[in-house]
Amino acid sequence: MFDRAGLIAACEAHGRIVRVVIASVQGSAPREAGAAMLVWDSGQSGTIGGGALEFELAAAARELRQDRRSRHALGPDLGQCCGGAVEMLSEVYDLNRARALPHDLVARGPDPMPLSIKRLMKAARNQGQLPPAQLKDGWMIEPVQPEDQDIWIWGAGHVGRALVDVLRHVPGHRLTWADTGAERFPRNVPDGVTTVPAIDLPALAAHAPEAAHHLILTYAHDIDLGLCHALLTRGFTSCGLIGSATKWARFRKRLATLGHRVDEIDRITCPIGDPSLGKDPHLIAIGVAYRLAQSTQTIPRRLETLA
């Protein structure tokens, strides 16, 4: 995906940036269409597969002053063992150009936009599905990586620790980890994870972003219920609760008694993850991570008009 936020951050830190992206692949190649790297005068980030191709294009990017498209036969031209060929697009960005990019789909090519591209964009808008990165009829199309989503993990027990261990490796998320006391967290919390000890977790829920995803798995059913009630009142993008069918049936009745409509209660998923994988904490976490990854493959509510 096109990491718009990462490109903007790179422009803010380093000024002029060249984004080098694989536009298309024929045969065998180290990376797929859409793989990209950012290059600036004193460094680079990301990878298009390493080796001679990456070295050559990174060096060329530092001298580049305007967008360039190039084709490389990996074996004959570069001596790489891959037998395929790649078409590359190198684009020069400053901060203004990066900020002007759409938030959902980036499509660019020679004017006028072909009918095939207009149809692809319309289908993406109507069906809500992100198209893969591709070069089509001379136009490069890439879905934009959504801005980081907030995930709040409620509970620092075995499942909570497994969720943090797995989700911290999944790009595109900010993790906030809450429990009733600082002593409940492990001694070494991974970088990038914000811990919040709070005696009253349901009260803390009122301060979570309305667009956050929530995973409730504390040590006490009354705290879990209080969090469900607080989050239904607060609002959320998604909410998952660990528990059995019996626990969820009881919670549904009590949440209805607390004044929540059935359609609101049904927005809470119980149990979390994929039950077919089993109840091991890390298998639960893998199921959760898979579902979150699936949720990023849809068009955001606001689709830019590119035609």
Rank of each mutant, 00 (worst) to 15 (best):
P102V: 08
E56P: 00
A205K: 12
L225P: 02
R65H: 14
E210R: 15
R108W: 10
D3C: 04
D266T: 09
R69T: 13
L167E: 06
H221K: 11
G181H: 15
R174A: 06
R291I: 00
A59I: 03
S45T: 14
Q127M: 02
A206E: 12
T233Y: 01
T47C: 09
A5C: 02
E54Q: 10
P30I: 04
T298A: 13
H213Y: 11
C228Y: 03
L53A: 12
R68S: 12
S295N: 09
H214A: 09
H103V: 02
R62K: 15
I141Y: 00
L101M: 15
S116M: 00
R99I: 05
A10F: 03
V144I: 04
E210F: 10
G138P: 01
G34C: 09
G172N: 08
A156V: 06
V92N: 08
L105V: 15
T180Y: 05
V144P: 03
A211R: 14
I153C: 03
S70D: 04
Q26S: 14
A33R: 07
E264Q: 15
Q26W: 11
L258W: 06
A107E: 01
P190L: 13
G259T: 05
S295Y: 01
Q66A: 15
S28V: 04
M121N: 01
I286F: 13
A205E: 08
R184T: 11
W152P: 00
P146A: 08
C270K: 00
V189S: 15
A230V: 01
R174E: 06
H214N: 12
E56F: 04
T47H: 10
T305R: 14
L130M: 10
E91C: 11
A220C: 01
Q80L: 13
L38D: 11
S70E: 04
L225Q: 07
A5V: 07
Y219G: 05
L217M: 15
V21I: 12
P146I: 02
A293K: 02
D94H: 12
G43K: 05
L130S: 01
L306D: 03
F55Y: 14
A206M: 12
I117Q: 03
G226F: 07
G79V: 08
P197S: 13
D222K: 15
A35D: 07
Y290G: 09
R99E: 13
W177T: 09
T237V: 00
